[in-house]
Every structure is written in C-alpha cells, then in structure tokens.
Write a protein that binds this DNA or RNA. Structure first.
Length: 806
RNA sequence: GCCGGAGUGACGGAAUAGGCAGACGUGCAGCACUCAAAAUGCUGUGUCCUCAGUGGCGUGUGGGUUCGAGUCCCACCUCCGGCACCA
C-alpha cells in the first residue's frame, strides 16, 4: 500500500480536534444547520450500523460546512437502560462503571472513524446533570395533568421475577431466557400522549421531508378510528357501552361480546348456568400469553347466560365472553355482527349463532362476512340506503334516543413510562401517609439514583430495597413518606436530548429557550428505521409539549428525516446474536477508516439494506490508492497549447462536481462515488499522456474538494502535500461552470422499428430535420430500410431517431 | 389478513418527465511485469446461434398501451419490512 493510513488518520483526527474545526457557536452571519445522528446506546463496541450512520452524518456535516453553513453536529450517549443492568446481573460489574468504560471505548472508536462532532456538547443520559432535567420535565408534565398514575397490566417474567418493557418481549417470550411472559396488574406511571393524538396525526402531513413509510407507520400506530359509542341494556339489569365503526349494521347484531376483563362480566355470570365454565375461561384467558390467545383453533368464548337488548329493534341477543375482544381498546365490549364482520362470522359459525346480512353483497359474492359498501337490507328504517347514509341516519337516531353519539377511538395508548428497574432516572414523586401522592419540589431536585450493589430480581425495583432512598419526609406535612421506586423509560431521555444539545451545560434550566430558538429545528436527523414509531413519536410529543409551555421554538423537532438500511451478511441482519459481525475496528487497522467510509457510501442506496462484502472495502481502498497516486505523483508535464483533450478533462471534472453535488443533496451517495471513480480513471489516462500542469492541478483540486467529506483523511493529507496552507475542511465546496459542463456533441442512436441499428456523434443543437436527414443517410440504416416503405420517423433530437418501416 | 417496499449478470448495484439495459465496484479468465508470488497495469466477461454478424433473445410471470417499456396500466408469483382479532 502506498500510503500509511494509520499515520495519516491519526494525524488529521488530532488536527481537527485541537483546532476545534467542528466547534459550533451561535452565529447570525451564517445560515445554521443542525445535523444529528440518533445518539447511541454505549454498548462498548462500534458496529457497522454505527459506522454507516456516522459516515452519512459526518459527510453531511463536512459538506454543509464547506457550503458555508454554521453546522451543529453533537454526539452523546443513551446511557441508561436495561442492557447495563442485565450485564450487572450477569457479570457483577456495576452499571455505572460498565457504562462509563463503554463510553470511553466507543468515544475512541468513533474518533477513529474520523467522524467529527462538537464534543464540548457531549451529554450522557445517566449523568445527573442530564437526568435531573428528566425529573424537571416529569414535574412539568405532572402539573399540566399529563403525567398520572394508574393500574395497568404489565409484562411479567415469572422466572426473572421482574417486569419487562414491551420491547423486551419478543413473540410473547422474555428476551433474556425465553420464558412465556405473563400479564400482571400493577400501579404504573403514564404520560398522556393520547391527548396529543390528533395533533401528532395531523401534523404528520407537514413532515413532507420524512419517508412516507415512517409517516404511514406513525399513522397506523396512532390508529384514529371514527365511529359511534352507544349503550346496550342487559335483560337482567345493567348496561354496557360498545364502540363500532359500522353503526349501519346494528340491525344485524346477533350477539354481544365482552372482554374477559370487562367489569360487568362478574355480575353477568353470577348464578348463571354457565358460571363455572365462564370463571374457568376468565382465569385461563388472564394466564394466556398473547400468542396463545391468538393461537390456531380459532376464536374461543363462553356464553354468560345473559342477554342484551338490541336498541334498534328490541331483540334479545346472547352475551358472550371472548378474548378476541380486547379490554384495552374501545369500551372492551362489542356488538357482534357476523354478517359484516369476519371475526364475528368465525365466532358465530363456531358457536351456532344466527347470522343476518344487513348489507347486500354483490351477486357473485361467495365469501363469508361482507365488509364492503352496499345497499342496507333487513334493517327497518335503514333499508335501501348505502352505507354512508345509513351510518348518518342511525347516528342521528341514537342521538335522538340519547343512547349514543359519534366518538373517535385511537389505537395509541398512553405512554407507560414506569420501569421496575434500577438503571434509569428516578421518578420524582413521593407517597405520603397523609397527603398521598406528592411531587418532589423542584428545589429538591435532583433525586439522585443511589448506589446499589444487589440487582438480583425480587419482583420490584431494586431501589425499593434501599431504605435511605425510599424513606423520606413529605414536603407538605413533614410526615413520613416513601419515594417512588420506579425509574423512567429511557425513551423519556431520548425524547428531548436533542434540545439539551443546544445548551448542554446549563445548570439552571433544562435549556435557555434562546439556544433552541437559534438551532432548532433539526435540519437533518439520521438513524435506523427501527425507531420509526416509538422514539420518533415520543420525541414529537414531548417537543409539542415543550412548545406549548414556551420552551421549544418549534412543534416538530425534525424537519428532514433519513432512515438508513441495515447491514446484512448471508441474508441476515449483521448482529452479535446472529454471530455474523464484521468488526469495523479490524478494518480501520487493515484498510483504513477512509476506505471503510467510502465502502459504506458506495455499497448501495443508503435507505436500503445492504449486503456486506469485505472485498468491497478492498475496492474502495484501491480507488484511494489511485487517488493517492494522482495527488502525490510528480507528473511529467509538457508545455504546449491547450487542446480539446485538456478542455475535456476539465469538463469531466466539472460534470463530476455537478453530479456529486446533486447526488449528495438527494442522499444518493452510492452514485456519487462512481462519478468520482470515473473522474479518477479519466484523470489517470490524462496524466499518462503529456498533460498540462495547470489543467491537471485544477482537476485534482476539484477531486480532493469533493472527497473531503467522504474520505477526509486522505483528501486532507494530499491537499496539504500539494502546498495548500489552509485546511481542506474549511474550503468552499466547488461549483461547476455551466459553460464547461455543456456537451458539444452527443451520441445519437438510430433505431429501425425500435431496434438500435446505428449510433452517430451529432451536434447537441441539431434540428429535427437535420437529425432525420442524417439518420436516413447512414449506410447501415439504408441497408435496413432499402426495399421497405418508411411509414414514420420519430425524432427526439439530439438523442434518438426511430425509423418505422413496413 | 391489512399496509408499505422490492424483484435487473456469478455478486453489490447503475439506468425512471418512457428513448444505447448492465455504469461503477467485486469476482472470474487471459496477458504484461516478475526467477516466482503479491501488488500494479492492460484486455475480456448477460445469453444463444460451433466462427463470423447490419444476427436472435434478455430486467420475476402472463397480458396490454406505445414508433419505442426495466420504467406506464391490468392480473399473478416470490421476497423483505411494519401492523397484526383495534370492533
């Protein structure tokens, strides 16, 4: 290898850091650009996903600086969370020590990539000067009625004796040991994100620079559904509410279903002939995992022994308990209309319940439930109406009768933020024997996470065992009180950390609003698509809240979102658990960070998953060797008049500038690299045949400027070697000369009946008449058309002429 | 099941306001340099017709629109991702 990547990379990483090239400060004289990669969990090992992410981010940081923007590109650590605690349980290393060691390691590794950040703004969510503002934020939410405590079913691993976060439950099993997860009722803290459901949904329309896929996923996650809620009386007394989006089918209700957890169930089954069976069913349903509930064998349920009265026609219908109705959605009870609902159809056929069609299916309908639009039948005063009109009519009727009204349901639930875990931010609340729930006064913040030595799961937060922590006095009455021992979901940290970067060391406030007023919104946010819903939705919610209380200047934090694809190897996601990891550190050593960066840019569309092939890194290294040779060689130059060849190589360089600029702006790095490769190849050809020094130097200059954000170490070294005293990173991004870029001639293809039969160089400004005449005069073409009738000639000058013959 | 996205050489992938399919890279083969190897450079590399050519075929499958389709339309197949009994 002709250049020593280890020496060059170390040299320039040091120069960039000591000269603070990437230090960001507010500056009204330049347009700002806030460029952010999602902050990582400090696993201690840099993997290819990080490399890809930070390569894209760093490219953009360097590119935007060269374009004259004042760029903020910070880095920090999502350093609270379960892996550290799990590691502590397994290895006995304290989470704090473990985490800080891993941050040290990863910081070094990120610096080895040559990715540059304003490290002065570094933050870590496990630092008290960060998480105290989590607590402050919690209190703000609490005081605005957006944080509340309620009973909820949580995931419980009976083996580990611990609560699991949703993301730790994989297909109904505990991710740690594969134990089937159970549901347990516990008192939990929530953030009232549902209050923002409509805003979060409507505002998605404005996020035009987000991938449609992510917006669609958020829309589905919020799951807004318009319908009707109405009350159904029970024959033996009592009533329950149901939600439906198809009130037009109410005449087709032939049974009702309550979720097993529905509060009315107890009174319905008491003393009924199916009481024993029903009780057994309820117990079994409570124990069953989600997968078991959905398992094959179809829907299950049990008759309560009670009947409900259909309000539209007074008909009594049986009430069932079935676990296909979820307590967590709508009212936990439904009117079942098997004629128009496939789930109800399946249940009805299994239990021999009547089916009444209330929408006329098409003549050729041979399916089961018909869910499409059609004329209403068997429905009294609704007969003959199409679906929408029937809906409107019945809603009016339900309102007149005062038994129902139009309502909206969401699939989005309030955000459960309690974690019965140690390694997180303590929730700043107290339980006073006299006063009940009491928030910790702001002046008493932070509530410090105490040092704990024993994480052995005992079915409650490890903090509950720390008596010094738990026992305190009530700020209201000075009586004895106990601290909340749950910690917060780490998604709380990540829902506002990007605002903290704008004022990372503020000890008096979460941040001074003037700082985000300058930097926000984030112009470009880059990360994995796995965060499409949770993190990106929570961050939007919290930013909206901070906007409402006057702290954030924007409602939407992320103007432009880019989601990168995964790295795969042998068809599987590259991951430690899949055992197919190609360690980037080894490649830094063997091929250099620049070659690895270029490979990540080159390997495929940034949005797509990309299949790893180490030979590809060989390829980009070879390209850099060629660049090195072009940049460092003592050329054999001649003195002569400028010719077309000289002008052409400059034209190629300028066209490359145009192509690379456009490609970077569209995040098409995988086509920008080939353009540079072609330039290097052409330049090598040019150099081998009596080049002019001035022309050659100019082409190399442009090439190095373009490589600066992509392969910064090699580009900087060559730039310096070529006698430039000012650092490459601080140069202006090159522009192209329109005059030079313009092509004088172009290859015109000539087709006969749509097949290419000849190609010919023509002037770019050739007229249609000239093009046609020229095409028809070509020898090859005449051979094809002689003896045939020319029926038509299609001319798209200067690119193509198509001659249609009979 | 529903909603997205994608099917192009041995491989990663280029090419869409419809106009040269396979850029660039990898791999492979041959040649040069070398005692030899590595490195480097050059040449070739979709496929069929034994060689050639003004040749045939070719972008998941089958149709269609068009002078012209990888690109647009219809039907289908396969793969990937998301949601998953949400009433």
């Amino acid at each position: 290898m002709s250049y020593d990547h280890r020496a060059i990379e170390a040299k320039w990483q040091d120069r960039w850091a000591t000269e603070k090239v990437f230090h960001a400060a507010e500056d009204g004289s330049k347009p700002k650009f806030y460029n952010l990669c999602m902050y990582p969990y400090p696993s201690g090992v840099l993997h290819q996903g990080h490399v890809r992410n930070y390569t894209f981010g760093d490219l953009l940081t360097r590119y935007k600086i060269m374009q004259g923007y004042n760029v903020l590109s910070p880095m920090g650590w999502d350093s609270f969370g379960l892996p550290a605690e799990n590691a502590a349980i397994d290895t006995g290393i304290h989470p704090k020590l473990n985490t800080e060691n891993q941050i040290t390691t990863m910081t070094r590794q990120i610096k080895q990539l040559g990715a540059m950040y304003d490290w002065d703004r570094e933050l870590a969510s496990h630092h008290v000067d960060f998480y105290r503002w989590d607590q402050w934020l919690f209190l703000e939410l609490y005081e605005h009625g957006l944080a509340y405590k309620a009973e909820a079913l949580v995931n419980w691993c009976p083996k580990d004796q611990t609560v699991l976060a949703n993301e730790q439950v994989i297909d109904g099993l505990c991710e740690r040991d594969g134990t089937p997860v159970e549901k347990k009722q516990l008192s939990q803290w929530f953030f009232r994100i549902t209050e923002f459901a409509d805003r979060l949904l409507d505002s998605l329309d404005n996020l035009t620079e987000w991938p449609d896929r992510v917006r669609t996923m958020q829309r589905n996650w919020i799951g807004r559904s318009e319908g009707v809620t109405f009350t159904i009386e029970v024959e033996r007394g009592g009533s329950f509410d149901v939600f439906t989006t198809r009130p037009d089918t109410t005449f087709g209700m032939t049974f009702c279903v309550l979720a097993p957890e529905h509060p009315l169930v107890e009174s319905l089954i008491t003393d009924s002939e199916t009481e024993t069976e029903a009780r057994e069913y309820i117990v079994a349903a409570g124990r069953a995992s989600d997968i078991e509930r959905m398992a094959e064998g179809g829907k299950t349920g049990v008759f309560t022994g009670s009947f409900a009265i259909n309000p539209v026609n007074g008909v009594g219908v049986p009430i069932y308990i079935a676990d296909y109705v979820l307590m967590g959605y709508g009212t936990g009870a439904i009117m079942a209309v098997p004629g128009q609902d496939q789930r109800d159809w399946e249940f009805a056929t299994k239990y021999g319940i009547d089916i009444i069609r209330t929408v006329q299916p098409p003549d050729d309908w041979d399916g089961e439930a018909y869910v499409g639009d059609g004329i209403t039948i068997n429905s009294g005063f609704l007969d003959g109406l199409p679906m929408e009109e029937a809906k409107n009519r019945i809603v009016d009727w339900l309102k007149e009768e005062e038994i129902g009204e139009a309502t909206v349901q969401y699939r989005l639930h309030d955000w459960l933020i309690s974690r019965q875990r140690y390694w997180g931010c303590p929730i700043p609340m107290l339980n006073c024997d006299e006063c009940g729930l009491v928030p910790v006064p702001r002046e008493d913040l932070p509530v410090l996470l105490p040092h704990v030595e024993d994480y052995t799961p005992k079915g409650r937060s490890p903090l509950a065992a720390v008596e010094d922590f738990v026992n305190t006095t009530c700020p209201n009455c000075d009586g004895p009180a106990q601290r909340e021992t749950d910690t917060m979901d780490t998604f709380v940290d990540s829902s506002w950390y990007f605002l903290r970067y704008t004022d990372a060391h503020n000890d008096d406030a979460i941040f001074d609003p003037s700082k985000p007023a300058y930097w926000m919104p984030i112009d470009q946010y880059i990360g994995g698509v796995e965060h499409a819903v949770l993190h990106l939705l929570y961050a939007r919610f919290i930013t909206m809240f901070l906007f409402d209380i006057g702290l954030s200047p924007v409602e939407e934090p992320f103007t432009r979102l880019f989601t990168q694809g995964m790295i795969t190897l042998d068809g599987a996601k590259m991951s430690k658990s899949a055992g197919n990891v190609v360690d980037p550190l080894g490649l830094f050593d063997s091929h250099g960070a620049d070659a690895l960066r270029l490979y990540h840019l080159f390997m495929g569309p940034p949005t797509d998953d990309a299949a790893w092939n180490t030979n590809g890194v060989e390829g980009t290294r070879r390209f850099l060797e060629r660049v090195w040779k072009l940049g460092s060689a003592e050329g054999v130059f001649v003195v002569r008049e400028e010719t077309d060849t000289d002008r052409e190589i400059l034209a190629v360089a300028h066209r490359t500038v145009r192509k690379v600029t456009e490609d970077i702006d569209r995040f098409r790095f995988n086509t920008a690299i080939p353009a540079l490769m072609i330039l290097a190849n052409e330049l090598a050809d040019y150099a081998s045949d009596e080049p002019l020094q001035e022309t050659y130097d100019e082409a190399v200059r442009l090439m190095l400027l373009m490589l600066s954000p992509m392969a910064p170490h090699v580009a900087h070294e060559l730039w310096e070697m070529r006698g430039n005293s000012e650092m490459l990173a601080l140069q202006d991004w090159p522009t192209w000369d329109e005059q030079l870029v313009r092509e004088e001639t172009v290859t015109m293809i000539v087709q006969v009946n749509g097949k290419v039969r000849d190609r010919v160089e023509v002037a770019t400004d050739i007229t249609a008449e000239e093009a046609e005449e020229h095409a028809l005069s070509l020898d090859k073409i005449r051979g094809w058309i002689d003896g045939h009738e020319v029926r038509k000639v299609v001319v798209r000058q200067p690119n193509l002429v198509n001659i249609v013959i009979g």
